[in-house]
Design a protein around this nucleic acid. Structure first.
Lengths: 96, 96
DNA sequence: AATATATATGAACAAGTGTTCATATATTCA
DNA sequence: TGAATATATGAACACTTGTTCATATATATT
């Protein structure tokens, strides 16, 4: 394995910050199967639209989700298999 | 795969909180090869002993590290292969 | 018992974070 | 163009978190 530098470890911490909030984990998890609109996500999680929108922006900036517009609606989906894998490994850990 | 409940996702977020701080990631990373004493860790990370001790308690409570006493010295080590694997996956993600 | 060394802990403080509210922007449809 | 719907954004606030300082506890040594 490549040598892990100090800087890499800072970036890893930054990455994990995204997964360190239950709202964001729930958002990411509900994107496991399908893409979903902002309002769908808000309904599913029973939270208000603004809160979801703020969190989606964080996930977007970190490139963990991507989105596409279709008319008025914006659909979000996971950007990367890594996201799925990291969360699955977290789930496995806590389910033991 | 087992059905993921809402509670599981909360626990997953709690788990990832441990990895969401660069001090804790650096502590865990420096335990990859060897167990290490508190002062060794503090020296390696160039941080004061109290800060390290506080963080080690958090990691201990979450069962990510374990420790053993040998005289005055307390040696910490990773508690679980999952910890190593999750961090490695994080490293791979950011190194791409 | 007294001293030195290793680690842990509590209080305090600064900095960061997530949600809400109000409002702005963008798109569609009548 | 005006109204309706979907999403985004900024400000404010409460809450959490990481570090430092001072000090406590535990062990070893003399």
């Amino acid at each position: 394995m490549k040598k892990t530098t100090e800087n890499t470890l800072y970036d890893v911490a930054e990455l994990f910050k995204n997964f360190a909030d239950s709202t964001r984990i729930r958002i990411l998890h509900c994107l496991f199967e399908n893409e979903r609109s902002v309002n769908e996500i808000a309904d599913l999680l029973n939270m208000n639209q603004s809160a979801i929108s703020h969190q989606l922006r964080i996930l977007k900036n970190s490139k963990l989700v991507k989105n596409r517009r279709e008319g008025k609606t914006i659909y979000y989906s996971l950007d990367d298999d890594h996201v799925y894998n990291i969360i699955c490994q977290g789930i496995e850990h806590v389910e033991e």
